[in-house]
C-alpha cells in the first residue's frame, strides 16, 4: 500500500492505495464518485475522462498513485458551487447531446478541456478535439452542437455557431403522433 494525498472535486483525501489501482477505480470505489464510468478495456472510449492537474486524461490509463499531490476534477465537481449546471452540462441537455448518456461524463470533461485551449472551435475542430471519446448512440451531431453552444455561452456571446438541434424538432411531431 502507498499513501496518497489528492484533491478531488475540491476536497482533500488521504488514502492508502495499491500501486496497481487505476485512478478510475480509486474514484469510483474508494471515493464513491461513480459519475466517472468505465466503457472499455483498451483506453479508446474516453468515458472515464477526468481532469488531472488541469488536463483531460483517461482515468483508466493513469495509476491512482500518479495523482498523488495532484488535483482531480470529475464530472461531479464541474458544476458551480451552490447549484446549477456548468454551461457545458446545460448545453448537452438543451441540444440533446446524449441518448443513453454513458459517454456523457467523458464527453463533457473532454469538451471543457478543448475549450480551454480553443474557446471558439469550428465544427471540424470540435470533432477532432473530442476524437478520444466514442459515442455509440448519437452520431455525434448534437454533441458537436452542444460544444459549440457552450463555447458561445462561455465566451459570453449567446449561442455561438450552434443552431437548435434540428433532429429534435423534426422528431417531435412524429413522436407525439405515435403517442396519440
Amino acid at each position: 500500500m502507498t499513501q496518497i494525498n489528492v484533491r478531488v472535486d475540491g476536497v482533500t483525501y488521504t488514502d492508502d492505495v495499491e500501486p496497481r489501482t487505476l485512478l478510475v477505480h480509486y474514484l469510483r470505489e474508494q471515493l464513491g464518485k461513480v459519475g466517472t464510468v468505465v466503457g472499455c478495456d483498451t483506453s479508446n472510449c474516453g468515458a472515464c475522462t477526468v481532469h488531472l492537474d488541469g488536463a483531460a486524461v483517461k482515468s483508466c490509463t493513469v495509476l491512482a498513485v500518479q495523482a498523488d499531490g495532484g488535483e482531480v476534477t470529475t464530472i461531479e465537481g464541474l458544476a458551480p458551487e451552490g447549484g446549477g449546471l456548468h454551461p457545458m452540462q446545460k448545453a448537452f441537455h438543451e441540444m440533446h447531446g446524449l441518448q443513453c448518456g454513458f459517454c456523457t461524463p467523458g464527453m463533457i470533461m473532454a469538451s471543457v478541456d478543448l475549450l480551454k485551449e480553443n474557446p471558439d472551435p469550428s465544427e471540424t475542430e470540435v470533432r477532432e478535439g473530442i476524437e478520444g471519446n466514442l459515442c455509440r448512440c448519437t452520431g455525434y451531431q448534437n454533441i458537436v452542437r452542444a460544444v459549440q453552444q457552450a463555447a458561445g455561452e462561455m465566451r459570453g456571446s449567446g449561442n455561438g455557431h450552434a443552431s437548435p438541434a434540428e433532429v429534435d424538432t423534426a422528431a417531435a411531431p412524429h413522436v407525439a403522433g405515435a403517442q396519440q
Binding site: 486524461v57 478541456d113 478535439g129 478520444g132
Partner: peptide, 9 residues
C-alpha cells in the same frame, strides 16, 4: 498521435 487525453500524458 491518438487523442488529446493520450497526448496529455
Amino acid at each position: 498521435v491518438a487523442d488529446r487525453q493520450v497526448r496529455a500524458r
